[in-house]
């Protein structure tokens, strides 16, 4: 919240020089809630349709999907946002995990092959982004090292990022732990319930102003 207050001040200072459009990637580990967030932004700011399918099975999203013309508006004007929902980034893809979700061995291996290609596409998408939202599952500590990998790569490319601590609707969620772990300002959200979205939009606008 504090981050947004600071960014909100910056937003007012730099409102005159705001970018009119921004491509923002939604990145993170599998099942962190990236597609739920993309759907939420699309429903609230885009054409009202869902961008992807949400599933408890990891690697449901295995391609990068973009939604253009999501409009975020404040008193200074509108920002035309392209959101890119990316496959979850992982260091391993174990087909046996899909079998635990009821898929046959053949289906699991097919899904695992698609998932490995999806991870590569997610990594390659970093070069095409103006900004990124790193979605961390606040209910699942210890947090995956790929989050540091993603953040480190964004910083190395000078791509501004927002850390969204998702799933705050779950009782076990601990956004403070996310903040302490990543030593970074975070935005607690529940993409599923829609809480924290105004703060998130405020941070996106602040990035457009910077």
């Amino acid at each position: 919240m504090e981050a947004c207050v600071h960014l909100g001040i910056l937003a007012r200072i730099f409102a005159k020089s705001r970018k009119h459009s921004l491509t923002i990637g939604i990145l993170g580990a599998p099942n962190a809630g990236k597609t739920t967030l993309a759907n939420r932004i699309s429903v609230e700011c885009g054409n009202g349709k869902h961008l992807g399918i949400v599933s408890p099975i990891p690697h449901e999203t295995r391609e990068c999907f973009a939604m253009e013309h999501c409009m975020i508006t404040d008193q200074h004007g509108s920002l035309d946002l392209t959101i890119v929902d990316t496959p979850g980034i992982a260091t391993s893809v174990d087909y046996r995990e899909f079998q635990h979700h009821g898929l046959s061995r053949e289906e699991s291996i097919t899904r695992a092959k698609e998932a490995t290609r999806g991870v590569v596409k997610a990594i390659q998408s970093l070069d095409r982004l103006d900004a990124a939202i790193v979605v961390v599952d606040a209910a699942r500590a210890p947090f995956d090292q790929v989050n540091w990998t993603v953040m480190g790569n964004l910083e190395a490319r000078n791509i501004p990022l927002i850390v969204a601590a998702n799933k705050t609707d779950l009782p076990e969620a601990d956004p403070k732990l996310v903040q302490e772990t990543f030593q970074s300002e975070i935005i607690p959200i529940s993409a599923k319930k829609g809480t924290g979205m105004n703060e998130l939009y405020g941070c996106i606008l602040a990035i457009a102003n910077s």
Binding site: A90, S92, T116, V120, I123, T149, G152, E155
Partner: peptide, 16 residues
């Protein structure tokens, strides 16, 4: 380095 970790992920995915 983070960039090397990203390369390692890509290489691993290609070799799984």
């Amino acid at each position: 380095r983070p960039e090397e970790e990203a390369i390692l992920i890509e290489e691993a995915m290609l070799q799984i």
